[in-house]
Design a protein around this nucleic acid. Structure first.
Length: 599
RNA sequence: GCGCCCGUAGCUCAGUUGGAUAGAGCGUUGGCCUCCGAAGCCAAAGGUCAUAGGUUCGAAUCCUAUCGGGCGCGCCA
């Protein structure tokens, strides 16, 4: 980003956080629980009865021979009260009331519990008319702050993560019944716009066919760096803008309009659920900044240091070992980024009444958010019940593992990436499936291309650094969106070939063949995976789950004939296929990836 | 200087409130289309989980140190 001022989505700031998943998510109060929660609750009750309370630590079994689920908590519970873990495991099984869920629970190894689910319970989940998801019994108002591009330039690959991951999180929270308020905190204020306005003057003022905003911005930023007079003119433009100068405001507004419409087209192309109604720009908080500082002063939190107004909090130390400030007002009276974020928190608390606020931004901003959150808490801007959560993601690196340096504009624009993805996908579709109509090929290529790009991003743990690799991002084989779409398309093909209506299927189906059973167990996990993603903001867990599900379906498909089986088998297997298709399309939809009937 | 994060197969990555034999994909090698879509499946090879200690029934995961990489730290956004 040399020479380019960052946006919220990319600004500098801080420290990468240790990978951390939210813990201890509470079970819904009304008895609507996923299988994992049900098992946990029952085992924890049994642990209490045995006088060794503790978390059950239930998870999907790590190996098939360990059953369907396993509970690892008995050993720690035994240790805590000083009893033999094997003995406690036997007692827990004795005290366990879970016959409706598990047909067998066995102690294994040093004190694991291996849980084999009841086939009847699996059968109930295979009814294609049953709801796939249950809404939360305790819905929350959740602000999801994501995308947040700098409106001074065109969106590039560096904006992908926040946009895609945040959007998936928003969709999943909504699917679980929460009230989601999307907030696109775009960068539309400050020095960068002074630069653009100055550059506009230099270009004669009549440059409104900005088909390449990036180029315009780059030229301005070079001059800003190299020409003191231009830098001065830029600053003067900022002052003019902030003091409400009509001409400056009008030109600024034109930049904003052009840039926002560019973003909006990209969101539509990416199938990202952001609209202009979700835009809450930095500038929207301008008239709350002075008030915010005044409130801090009223709380006795402000200290003047070298002419700047700061909040010093003991938990943050700076270069000289002393307390590090959060500066909220510069010595020249100007406000800073932290000030805007504090005003934003007030808005989210007082106006939006959020229970949770999730920030999807670069991990380098971790310290910034830690400080802002701490100040917000100290000042009482943040109600005690409101949770502010930074969901950081890793930096984008070049293929040499070094930071992705843009040697004078070497960034890859999102539009160019998507063009390439769709072109490659179209070539592949034509090659693989020439019998499709041209319109179908184009539609499939669009879904595959965009889906592959999004999946490549979503499937990585967001905490990891991100090595941008063109070929990998546009791969169509292996653990990619096309693999999942292919599994889905094959299922659709089954119904077409058999001239069957999947919506006509109803009722339970008992899995008997091992491959059927393995698939059925995977199918019941959707809810628990989504709840985990909602808690942690980690959509890659959903990607892993869907890939695992698709792989299990494919294995089932290879091993179990469907259309050519006996009638009873056919119906059961069609139900398995239909539930898989529903789960895949639901899961992919929650990732913002659409399915295709043929590809 | 202070602080944070990361280091897992040739490559890209999963896997952490400590759990059983560390898993995928790509690539490599070898199989499987007269059989519901081969963008698929099966199999093989590939690992001192950076290094050295420590904690304990058990460590990729926790602690300490070292090495390597990234990032951040008072008026940029």
């Amino acid at each position: 980003m040399q020479g380019q001022l960052p946006s919220r989505g990319e600004r500098k700031g801080a420290i990468r956080q240790k990978r951390h998943y939210a813990l201890g998510r509470p079970a819904p109060a009304d008895g609507k629980m996923n299988v994992k929660q049900l098992l946990s609750a029952r085992i924890e009750t049994a642990l209490e009865r045995c006088g060794a309370p503790g978390p059950a630590l239930v998870k999907a079994a790590s190996r098939p021979e360990f059953g369907d689920y396993q509970a690892d908590g008995v050993m720690a519970a035994a240790k805590a009260v000083g009893v033999n873990p094997r003995t406690l495991a036997a007692q827990v099984i004795d005290q366990l009331d879970a016959e409706d869920l598990a047909e067998r629970v066995a102690a294994a190894g040093p004190g694991f519990l291996n849980i084999h689910l009841r086939t009847e319970m699996l059968a109930a989940h295979l009814d294609p008319t049953a709801a796939l998801l249950e809404k939360s019994a305790a819905p929350q108002r959740v602000v999801v702050d994501y995308s947040c591009p700098n409106l001074a330039k065109e969106m590039h690959v560096g904006h992908l993560r926040s946009t895609i991951i945040g959007d998936a999180a928003a969709r999943i929270l909504e699917a679980l019944g929460h009230r989601v308020i999307r907030q696109n905190h775009v960068g539309d204020w400050g020095t960068q716009f002074g630069m653009l306005l100055a550059q506009l003057d230099a270009a004669g003022g009549e440059l409104w066919d900005l088909n390449d905003l990036e180029e315009f911005y780059r030229a301005a930023s070079v001059r800003f760096r190299e020409e003191p007079a231009f830098a001065e003119a830029s600053r003067a433009k900022v002052v003019a803008l902030q003091s409400g100068d009509a001409a400056a405001r009008a030109n600024w507004q034109r930049f904003i309009d052009i840039s926002l419409s560019h973003c909006q087209k990209l969101y539509e192309r990416l199938d990202v659920g952001l609209t202009e109604a979700d835009v809450m720009a930095e500038s929207a908080y301008n008239d709350k900044l002075a008030e915010t500082v005044a409130l801090l002063e009223g709380k006795g939190l402000l200290t003047e240091s070298d002419g700047a107004r700061c909040v010093f909090l003991p938990e943050f130390t700076g270069k000289d070992g002393g307390s590090a400030p959060v500066i909220v007002q510069k010595s020249d009276g100007g406000y800073l980024y932290a000030t805007t974020d504090l005003a934003t928190i007030r808005h989210r608390a007082d106006v939006l009444r959020a229970d949770r606020v999730l920030y999807f931004t670069d991990s380098r901003q971790t310290l910034h958010f830690q400080q802002v959150f701490a100040v917000a808490a100290a000042a009482g801007f943040k109600p005690a019940a409101m949770s502010l959560e930074h969901m950081p993601f890793g930096a984008m690196l070049g293929k040499d593992g070094r930071p992705f340096k843009t040697r004078q504009g070497g960034v890859i624009k999102l539009n160019a990436l998507l063009d390439e993805a769709e072109a490659r996908a179209l070539a592949l579709v034509r090659d693989k499936n020439p019998s499709l109509s041209s319109a179908e090929q184009i539609a499939a290529a669009r879904a595959l291309g965009v889906g592959a790009v999004k999946y490549a991003d979503l499937a990585k743990n967001r905490a990891s650094d991100y090595i941008f690799n063109w070929d990998q991002m546009l791969a169509f084989e292996g653990n990619t969106a096309p693999y999942l779409l292919y599994a889905y398309a094959r299922i659709q093909s089954l119904f077409r070939r058999g001239r069957l209506d999947p919506t006509a299927l109803s009722g339970q189906a008992e899995p008997t063949h091992p491959a059927e059973r393995i698939l059925a167990v995977a199918l019941v996990r959707l809810q628990e995976v989504l709840e985990q993603v909602a808690a942690d903001g980690c959509p890659h867990l959903l990607c892993m789950y869907l890939h695992d599900l698709a792989a299990k379906f494919t294995k089932f498909y290879e091993e179990c004939p469907i259309l050519t089986a006996a009638e009873v088998e056919t119906e059961k297997r069609l139900k398995l296929a239909q539930q898989t298709a529903r789960t895949l399309s639901t899961g992919l939809g929650l990732l913002g990836i659409g399915v295709v009937q043929r590809m």
